[in-house]
């Protein structure tokens, strides 16, 4: 028989609020945030540094108490008084943890395994993150990528149903990042749920079934990565750099009148003008643009096309770049 708690979503957050006060200054990190993470999905929290992602995750992990709002993890609340029952079912990889530097990989995992009543063996956990060869290597001899994989293995050794990964690939080289992505995919394929925070849009696009874009402590958009990109109204960008004063520049209205163009923007730099078109189909918009530029006698200095990304979604929603500091 399935209990109500077993059927509940992996994470339910309602009206979540958390503010931090330092001296006379109060910063609202999470501002009435609502969220539901379904079982079996990889859910991404995407936002710039300071957007409230880590605070939200730490509230979910029971590390931080919210000022207001409801938190239910796997159908249970941290206020129910049986925190151990939740901890036995979750795995956590914090943004940064330094294990004992003289401990071996095997010893670190044994320590993290011992308090779980059920879970994976240490050897299985090492195999999940391909660290078998480093089983007897001490912490201090591991590379950054290996340490991060060990941190993920320590989160997986209790065989969790729900895995929290807080910016797991920050600072890693591309190969280490791909290895960790595969670990996440394998975990999801086994039926696990993941809440992932990242400020890498490619990571969110690659891994996440759904993404919540968070800014200033609020969810400002929530959909699949493809759905979020589609919400821009067009999925491609065409950028043309034309030499200044080489002809008569088209107006915005003229550019928007081209086939499949959803939006147009101008950006003037010394000696050139950049035209950026948001287009629904490149193969229809691009020839029309080139024809227009030729008719106006404009000399083309550069031309590029690219797919829209979650970064574009964020810029579209907030007017700011994802990696701008101090976004909230």
């Amino acid at each position: 028989m399935t209990s109500a708690a077993d059927a509940a979503p992996a994470i339910e957050l309602a009206g979540l609020r958390k503010a931090f006060t330092k001296g006379r200054e109060t910063t609202v990190a999470v501002d009435h945030l609502d969220l539901v993470v379904r079982r079996g999905e990889v859910f991404g929290l995407l936002g710039p540094n300071g957007a409230g992602k880590t605070t939200t995750v730490e509230i979910c992990e029971g590390l931080t108490a919210p000022d207001a709002g409801e938190v239910r993890i796997l159908g249970r609340s941290w206020r129910d008084g049986d925190d151990g029952a939740i901890r036995a079912r979750i795995g956590v990889c914090l943004q940064e943890t330094r294990f004992h530097e003289h401990a071996t990989v095997r010893e670190v995992l044994a320590l993290f395994r011992v308090s779980f009543e059920r879970g994976r063996s240490v050897d299985e956990a090492m195999a999940l993150v391909s660290l078998e060869e480093k089983a007897d290597a001490r912490q201090k001899s591991l590379s950054g990528g290996q340490r991060q994989r060990l941190a993920v293995a320590a989160a997986l050794v209790g065989d969790p149903e729900l895995l929290f990964l807080d910016e797991p690939t920050t600072g890693l080289d591309p190969q280490s990042r791909r290895q960790l992505w595969q670990v996440v995919r394998d975990f999801r394929a086994g039926g696990g749920t993941v809440l992932l925070t990242t400020h890498y849009m490619d990571e969110a696009e690659q891994l996440c079934d759904r993404v919540a874009v968070v800014d200033r402590g609020r969810v400002i958009a929530l959909d699949t990565p493809a759905g979020l990109i589609r919400s821009l109204g067009a999925e491609h960008f065409v950028t043309a750099d034309v030499v200044a004063d080489s002809g008569v520049a088209p107006t915005e209205a003229e550019l928007r009148a081209l086939p499949d163009v959803a939006a147009a923007a101008f950006d003037t730099a010394p000696g050139s003008v950049r035209l950026t078109l948001t287009v629904r189909s490149v193969h229809r918009a691009l020839p029309a643009l080139l024809t227009l530029l030729e008719q106006r006698g404009l000399v083309l200095g550069g031309l590029s096309t690219r797919h829209a990304t979650l970064e574009d979604v964020f810029v579209h929603l907030t007017g700011r770049q994802l990696r701008e500091g101090g976004a909230a």
Partner: peptide, 17 residues
């Protein structure tokens, strides 16, 4: 300071243990 205690806190390990 190294977040190791925090990390242990989110396992079922008890303070007394």
């Amino acid at each position: 300071t190294q977040n190791l205690l925090r990390r242990l806190f989110v396992t079922p390990m008890r303070r007394s243990e």
